[in-house]
Structure formats: structure tokens, C-alpha cells
Write a protein that binds this DNA or RNA. Structure first.
Lengths: 195, 195, 195, 195
DNA sequence: GATGAATGAGCTTTCATTCAT
DNA sequence: TATGAATGAAAGCTCATTCAT
């Protein structure tokens, strides 16, 4: 993609993130995104097939980015304990820096429209898979104790997700940074990680 | 409310639960609910102010029910450990028996439309509060160790929520009943519950 | 179909005929038809699937009617000569009484949009078939001389069609009634009909 | 017009003929013509005022060509009989060699959009006039018998038009060349042309 | 002259809601 | 109370046309 094209593509995606976060996917008109992006309505359709494609692209682009960042962050970690803490920290940091994305994620992650769900599920599943890999490896290396990796992932992700959800819906949220340690402490107990 | 009126009210709410679960709130037309409930489109508006009111009523009615059931179930429990396990079991059992409600909960819990969110948040907050009460009491009685009750609740609820989410979106889910023990085992570790 | 439903259906079809005749299918907005029919835009869609369906229904309804009238008119005829004259007369009379339909026929008969063409071609082909039957019978009974029935039909129909076309596009057309004899006289020569 | 300018002008007209024939005037986007002509969308507007102007130009250019060819072909004819046969042959030959133009003619000849109709009617009327001239002269020279020249022209043109229409819409048309004689034989009878 | 990205007016269609019966 | 035909506002999307490069 050429430079200015890529820039406008990202500008529309940024605008969509903001707009979806504020109004929700269905309540948000395409014209609102266009206005926010500073382009004409029709321009949107030079970059995206339709409204749904904006949402889907938003996910693969932003979530892809997010997962990549997570991946990079754990690469230098030595132990499972470090890896888990690293994911918590990066997850919180990323969402804190991308509040609108966090909201959209919270909101649209569970769209029931099957078409949308399917399209969205890819990146999310990838993240789930990554977490499960870390857990599996931890079990193998006997760094953690865990009877069921899937349930472990559900707890791990569910906790982060619920924390974000609270943070997102709170008017005056305490910084997510402040609860990293608290969350990790719980995980340590759950996974029987030695001090 | 008179008997037959109450019955039709519930019939519409049942229909709405099914329909919202299948199509999602926005994608589901009021006429679909009407058809499923076996009433005319116009009749809906004799019982509900508008489409949004159906969703909101659905939540306060069904979630109210749910919370009441949870409350009843923990009333006979002696220890925090029992209470937590009881919540897990009842939560899973209720959702398993009301799959459509579970789906709607998953989907619409995070509506971004501020009006809807506000209306929905009531029952959910009540549930959060209940969990936090149990945790607080557990800390006070030194039955569990927990640095931050809110984060504890996030982990507790988030885990259940993520489990339901997986269960709901899976074509062939393993019964939730089967993971109660697994989930509880994690909680025991997290909250440092003695064996 | 119930009485009032049928009436409104016909009213919309009448309005569509007028509107298509005046503006052409593509240039005519659905809202114009609705206005002319005295109904709301949305009402149109209670009776027709979409804009195209209006055109298609218009054809099968009106052309069906037309062909039926032609059929009825020739039933009492004894000779091929009478039948041909009868078709000419009825064709002209019908179109003269349904000027808008005549225009729509002229205009949309040759739509290139394949979907529309296909849908429209049915009734027209039926008419062609009817003419060819009359000609074939005439040849068999030796009431006319004709080397090729299809070409004979092309001439017969083409002539009527061109006459209507002129009449339709003329501001001050001479009545079609006035040229029945002239047209028939040409046919008599072409088909070698004995005096 | 300069040489390369004229070439590009014709290239666009060629492309438009193909594209209109395939999709119809309204269904065909300007961008499709541009693509087919191998030029940018904007370039079209350096040669034509707007989409409508393409259609109109197409007609005056191509139909002008057609009529000129007809004119040239009858110039060497001695009798009305020869002239009529010559028109039939040339008409068929030209359309057979320019199938797309034939389609466009069939389709758009009867546009209801008044502006387009008016613009198109010029060349067509010229052709009508030419036919009528031949017929009038034939009557005057007593080579044909015809009560009404206009009706005569309607029959003559209508027949050719209907034949083309069939040919155009048929998947496997018999060559028009094959029906020249058949058509002429009918004309001979209609116009009482002596053998 | 040539380009093609950008524009935005205008279209078809949907669907929550109303109201005469 | 119940109905369901009718409403009409509103939204996604297309595409002829423009204009900066």
C-alpha cells in the first residue's frame, strides 16, 4: 500500500475505533466515522467493502498489533511466572493506551451476528492460543500446577477482561497499572507459582 | 398484574430471549419476537414501551431471578469456601439451563449504547456486590486471603464469564458442570483457601 | 387476495405504470410511485419485493391482461384474415386505451438488464407464440401464403410495434383506429390474402 | 479534431457501445467504459460532457455512419424494388457486423428519459425520412402501390427492427443474411411490387 | 492532456412504532 | 385488549463528476 493510502486507511480505522467505542457498532452511522476521519462518506468505501468490513479490519489490524506486542514482550522472559506477569502488564498497558480499542473490544467481542463473530474470532483465538501455550509450557516445566489448561486460560483471560471492563465503564477508573500486582498475586496463588 | 397479562408478558420476554440470543439485539426485529411469542407486532407495545424496554425488562426480570437463586443457594452455606463453590455451581447451572439467557447476557452485557448500558448495569452491579460481600466476609473471617476485594471479584466473575463465553460459542461444549471443580480449584489457590 | 389488498396492489401498479411511462424505469424513484399511488414509500414493499418486482409484476399483470383480451377477441373469428384484423384492432385499441402501458411496453420491452429482460420476456413470447399460431393455421388452411412463419410474425408484430412507437412519441398522434385498415391492407398483400 | 484526439474519441465510443450493449445505459457505470477504453475515468470528461452525451454522441456518430452507408448503397439502384431490397440487405449487414451497436439501438432507441429521447431521435428520424422518400418515389413512379407512406414506413422499418430484435436476443441466431429474401418477399406482397 | 482519488447527492430498502378496526 | 397494515424516518451504499497532481 502506498504511503498516503495507508495513512488514510489508518485514519479511518482510528475514527471507526473512536466512533464504535462511543456509539457502538450498530448505533454508529458510517457518516459519523467519515466525519471523524475528515473524509467524505463515499471515501470510506474506497478503503472498506462495507460497514462490517471496517469492524473486521479494525480487529485484525488492532488486535494483530496487540498480539504482536504481547508476543514481543514475552520473548525475553525466562520463566512462566515472568511470562504471565508480562502478559498482564502488556495487556493492561496496551488497553490503557488505547482506551477506545479497549471499549470496542469489550463491546463487540461478543457480537451475536454470526458473520461478525466469525470474522472477529480469529485474532481473539490467536490470543487464547498464546496464553494456553504459555500455560502448557509452564505445566511441562513444572513451573505451575494446573489441572486443565483451557480453564486456566479462561481464568487468566477472564480476569484481565473483567478488570478492563470495570476500568472501561468507570468514569474515574484507577489506573490499570495499579492492579497489575494484585492480579498477578491472584494468578500466583491459582497456578501455585512458587515465590 | 392480572394472571393472563403476566403470562403474556413472560411469553414475550421468553421469545425475546430466544430471538436476541439467535440474532442479537440490533439484528433482531421486533416482528420476530412477536411471531415467536405468538402475538401481533402491535401487542408488544401494550406490554413494553419500546424495543429497548424489552431488553431492559428482560435483564431486570431474568437477572433478578438469577441473583435471587444465587442468594438462596448460599444462604445455607457455612463457610466462604462453600459459598464460593455454591455460586460457581449455581451460576453454571442456571446458565446451562437457560442457554439463551446466557447468550444474551454475554452479548448484551456490554452494549455501548449508554442508555441500554445504564439500564442493564443495575442487576449486574447487584451481582458484583453480592460476590464482593462474600469475599469481604471471607477476608474478615480470615477464611481467605485477598489483598483487594474488587480485583478478587473481577477474577471470580471474569473466570465464570469467560467459561460461559467459551461454552456459549462452542458448537459442542463440554458441560459446565464438568468444570466446576476445576474452576473452584483455581479459586482455592488464588484466594489461599485452606484444604 | 382480499378485496382491499387487491385494490391497493392494483393502485400501486397503476401508479407505477404512469410513473415508469413518464420517467422511465431507472429515472423513476420508488417514492414517486408511492406518492402517485397515495401510499407511503414503505407500503410499496408490503406488496412488492423490490423495485424490479414492480416492473415485472406490471408486465405479467398488464400484458397477461392484454393477451387474454387478444385471445378472447379472436375466438369468434372464422378466418385467418379475420383473426389478423382482429389482433390489429384489439392491439391498437388496448394500447390506445392504456397509453402509459403502451409507453412502458415500448420503453422497457428492450431493457438490457438481463434479469429484467428475462422476467419480462415471458408474456411477450406468449404473444409472439399466439401470432405464430394464427399464421401457421392460416398457412395450413391455405388462407395465407407465407414462406416463414417466424419472419411473418416479425413483420406482423414489428409493424404494429412501430406504429405504436410513432403514436406514443408523437405529441398529436392521429388515432390508431384510423390506421387499422391501412395496416391490414399491407398485411393482406404481404400474406397474399385473397380479397 | 487532431488525429490522436479523434482516435481516443472513437475508442471511448467503441467501449461505450460494448458496455451499453452488455449492461444497458443505466446499469453501466462510466468507469466501466473508461476501463474498456483503456483510459482513466476523468479522461472521459475531456471528450464528453457527461454520461448522457456519450450515448447521444454514440448515436449521431454510429447512426450517421449507418445512414450514410444505406444512402451510398441505394445510390446505384435503378428501381424502388432494388432500393428496398438494398436497404434491407445493408441494414441487416450493418447490424450483423456491429452487433453491439444493434443491441444498443434496440435498447436505447426507446429511452423514456425525454432528454435522451430527443437527442436520439434525430438520426432515427433521418432514417425514417429516407425510407419514406424511397416509398414516395416508388408510389409516384407507380412501382409500388401504397395507400399511406407513413404506415408503409412503419411496416418496413418495424419488420427490420423486429427481426433484429429477435436476432439480438437469441443465443444462437440464424444469420440475418438468411432472411433477407424472406423479408423482401413479404414487402413485395405488401407493396404490390410486380415480379 | 491525462489521471484516479475523492466527493456527496441521492437512491433503495428496512423496520420500530402507530392506530383504525 | 389485540391486531397487523401502514407509516416514514433513517441508513448504507453507489457512482457521475470534479480537480489537485
Amino acid at each position: 500500500m502506498s504511503k498516503p493510502r495507508e495513512e488514510k486507511y489508518q485514519a479511518i480505522l482510528d475514527a471507526a475505533t473512536e466512533a464504535f467505542a462511543e456509539y457502538g457498532y450498530f448505533t454508529c452511522q458510517v457518516s459519523k466515522i467519515a466525519k471523524l476521519a475528515g473524509v467524505a462518506d463515499g471515501t470510506i468505501y474506497l478503503y472498506f467493502k462495507n460497514k462490517e468490513d471496517i469492524l473486521v479490519s479494525l480487529f485484525s489490524d488492532r488486535m494483530g498489533n496487540f498480539i504482536q506486542e504481547i508476543r514481543q514482550s514475552i520473548v525475553k522472559c525466562q520463566t512462566t511466572q515472568e511470562r504471565l506477569f508480562c502478559i498482564i502488564r502488556t495487556h493492561f498497558k496496551y488497553m490503557e493506551e488505547n482506551r477506545s480499542l479497549a471499549i470496542v473490544t469489550q463491546i463487540e467481542l461478543r457480537q451475536s451476528d454470526p458473520k461478525i463473530r466469525e470474522a472477529i474470532s480469529g485474532p481473539l483465538r490467536e490470543y487464547f492460543h498464546l496464553i494456553e501455550q504459555v500455560l502448557t509450557e509452564g505445566v511441562e516445566k513444572q513451573e505451575i500446577i494446573l489441572a486443565d489448561v483451557k480453564v486456566g486460560r479462561q481464568m487468566f483471560f477472564g480476569t484481565l477482561d473483567a478488570a478492563i471492563s470495570d476500568w472501561v465503564s468507570s468514569k474515574k477508573p484507577r489506573p490499570l497499572e495499579g492492579i497489575e500486582e494484585l492480579v498477578f498475586e491472584l494468578m500466583r496463588g491459582a497456578f501455585k507459582i512458587k515465590q
